[in-house]
Design a binder for these strands. Structure first.
Lengths: 249, 249
DNA sequence: TTACTAAAGGTCTCCTTGACTTTAACTAGT
DNA sequence: ACTAGTTAAAGTCAAGGAGACCTTTAGTAA
């Protein structure tokens, strides 16, 4: 609200950008799309893809446009949602920049297209970024960490995991997603029971796919449900993380 | 990220504000704090309290400051969290305004202080705003609706409900919060069993409070837990709402 | 055929949940 | 002082979900 002001000297307009945390599963590992910065500040550093919000577009449209520019994929095919907004005064040395972070989840996407305006876009294993080895530009490490946690909890209560799987997919494909994103193995039998019982999560195609070896697996498409009931909880692990996440800055 | 630009003509800085959805329970009804606008546009209309983010403060700090200005309450005593950011090009006729919405939950707060810069701040029953009778300024009806839904689901997975209760409080006080926010009654016995079993949700004081009539109730304080495990699910009701919420704009 | 592998389904026990009942502690009215 | 009324708190019970584990099925490779 641009109201009850009184301090016109204290407020100054800011640049508004969107940053994208684009996650995918490749080779049984969670990857994030990063671009190499082609200019100062942080020249040469890796960063999340993103860019300015244009004059006549909504934030969601800006995120969708950037997503398509960076991946070459029609953004409507991926899951895309706003996560959090970052606006610390010091986060960009050039001035006040507010960035709205979006989380995008998709199946094993093509290697980033040339021709995008991103310098050398590439997939990086999320683990290698978060274990402190690689520091991203600006506050992008924080954005990635917090968005990943959002993704992890989204898997508990929603059906977004299916967004990672190219259709049609098997129950094992879906389980792999959960295991890779959460970072620990699940019991195949119990997992199957839960996801197949959940209403409108999976829609059987009637077809089968033979793996390299072993019994052929039934194929499914994404159902209409967006919320998962009952949810697929991570149980005890939650209790550990809860003191690290919830403080204001 | 203020990067990969190329279109300096297409980007223009925007005003950045925070808007607050301050909820409280009074007289067994959910209320939201609204202010009457003292200038155009939407002069005289009711709106969410909020204001500009200043030069050297974070978004969280701005929200905290506005919260204290509007309620006169030390914001650190309330639950405050960022919810969503709204930035449609047309949402403010004066130009591009990006607003970061914050959700604040607190116990029955004092009637809004005079001396704040808000013209006639007041508590309004949430229901009366959302049933379409009263249209708020700008897109504030949308912000309120979406923030309320966030609050409702927060009650399922976190311990924020206790933020509505002035300490010390009884299990019935807490149940009332759930009933008022969710909008339907809960079984007192089963509710008690769940919240008292959840680890570190409630911390008994050992004291009791006698109601007007009936058996005295044990008193509790908020425990340290921020996440609620196991969660307190709304069950079936979730399935209904799920198709209305999750689309990009 | 046999060995191996992954998918799919079943078993069993424990725990949570929801619906409901019972007991406890207090107040107000007669 | 007894009874009715009211809220808190605890208990009961059947149904269902979850975790751990086993069995069967349907394919491939030697």
């Amino acid at each position: 609200m641009i109201d009850n002001d009184g301090d016109p000297g204290q407020v100054r307009p800011a640049a508004v950008t969107v940053d994208l945390v684009i996650l995918t599963v490749r080779h049984d590992e969670l990857h994030v799309l990063l671009v190499e910065r082609g200019k100062e500040p942080h020249l040469g550093r890796l960063a999340l893809p993103g860019g300015h919000v244009r004059e006549n577009e909504t934030l969601d449209q800006a995120a969708l446009r950037e997503l398509e520019e960076e991946t070459g994929v029609n953004g409507h095919l991926l899951h895309l949602e706003q996560v959090h907004t970052y606006g610390d005064p010091g986060r960009d040395p050039r001035g006040r920049v507010i960035t709205v972070a979006y989380l995008a989840l998709g199946p094993d996407l093509p290697v980033p297209v040339a021709g995008s305006d991103a310098q050398g876009a590439r997939w990086a294993p999320v683990e290698s970024v978060l274990d402190g080895q690689m520091e991203l530009a600006f506050d992008h490490s924080t954005i990635l960490r917090e968005s990943l946690e959002r993704a992890r909890s989204q898997l508990e209560y929603t059906t977004v995991a299916a967004a990672f799987c190219p259709e049609p997919f098997t129950v094992s494909d879906l389980r792999k997603v959960y295991e890779v994103v959460w970072g620990f193995p699940l019991d195949p039998s119990n997992f199957r029971r839960k996801v197949t019982r959940a209403e409108r999560f999976l829609e059987p195609t009637g077809e089968f796919r033979a793996p390299q070896i072993g019994r052929p697996a039934a194929l499914y498409r994404r159902g209409e449900a967006r919320l998962l009931f009952p949810p697929l909880l991570r149980s005890g692990d939650v209790a550990d993380a809860q003191f690290t996440a919830t403080t204001l800055r």
